[in-house]
Structures are given as C-alpha cells and as structure tokens.
C-alpha cells in the first residue's frame, strides 16, 4: 500500500558569497548532511544592487552587476557539484542568485528563507573585530538575532 503521508524534505538555505568562510559553511553542510535522505538545499548568493552614485553611467553599473552575477553563477555551480558529490541527489540542490536593492544582506537572506520555507539557514562567519561590527555590521549576527521560525547555523 502506498504511503499517502509522504514526508516533506527539510529545506536548508545555504547563504554564500565568494569568501573563504562561506566556503567553510558549504563544506560543513556537505559533510554533515551529505547522503542523509530527507534534505534539500538551496545555495543562495545575494548581490546587493549598488547605488547609482558609485558609477559614472548606467552601463558601468550594469556591467558591475553582470560581472558579479557571472562570478556567482560559476561559484554556485561548483558548490552544487560539491553537495552532489557529498551525497545530495541532483534534484535536491538548487542555486539562486538574487540581485536586489538590499540595505541589509541579512534581511534579504531571511526574506528568501521565509519565501522558500527553509527550516535552517547556514552562513559562514568571518570573525570580525568589534569595531568592524560597529561600523560595518555583521550579517551572521543579524541573522542570528532576527531569524524567526528557523534554525541558524553559523559556521566558523
């Protein structure tokens, strides 16, 4: 008899950029979850739209965005392969590049978590100094403080 109460996959959101700490977060998730059934993962790269003030023309700004998008695409494809090699099924790993106006990257990540219904957010942490956190802010700390209805894994 077919089981009508099919289990829903647990959906993990792994927020990434080109940093080494993001790579560590991805490798941790691959090592920890790879081969375990019942999980799916979305690899997310948020690219905050830069204000027009930094560019002399729209063309220059668009090129900046496209360059970042292209780098992100390549990075996420590589990371997708790593997850698959670790045991994730191919159809259980998605990649998502989100270019948007983004005063806070943490908020953008949590918006995606909510939209996709992810139960866990995985991020890396750079280990910034107190003064850097004061002036620049910390994405991982903000996710820790503001994440709702999800677990947050901060990988150092």
């Amino acid at each position: 008899m077919e089981n009508s109460g099919k289990l829903k996959d647990r959906h993990i959101l792994i927020a990434l950029d080109e940093s080494e700490n993001a790579r560590r977060a991805l490798l941790y998730a691959a090592d920890f979850l790879g081969g375990t059934p019942g999980f799916r993962a979305t690899l997310l790269r948020i690219i905050p739209e830069p204000p027009e003030d930094y560019f002399d023309s729209d063309e220059e700004r668009n090129k900046w965005i496209e360059d970042r998008r292209s780098t992100a695409k390549e990075m996420l494809e590589n990371y997708r392969k790593i997850l698959i090699q670790s045991g994730f099924r191919e159809d259980k790993v998605d990649v998502l590049i989100n270019v948007r106006s983004c005063p806070s990257v943490a908020k953008c990540i949590l918006d995606e978590q909510k939209r996709l219904g992810c139960c866990t957010v995985v991020v890396g942490r750079r280990g910034i100094s107190k003064k850097e956190e004061f002036i620049f802010g910390s994405t991982s700390n903000k996710i820790l403080h503001n994440g709702k209805n999800c677990a947050v894994w901060v990988i150092e």
């Binding site: 003030d53 005063p103 806070s104 990257v105 004061f134 620049f136 802010g137 994405t139």
Partner: peptide, 10 residues
C-alpha cells in the same frame, strides 16, 4: 557616499 556592508547606516 560610502560602500556599506551589513549595516547601511553604521
């Protein structure tokens, strides 16, 4: 203007 990171107004 400055290129902000997580905290736009820090």
């Amino acid at each position: 203007n400055y290129w902000h990171k997580e905290n736009m107004f820090g």
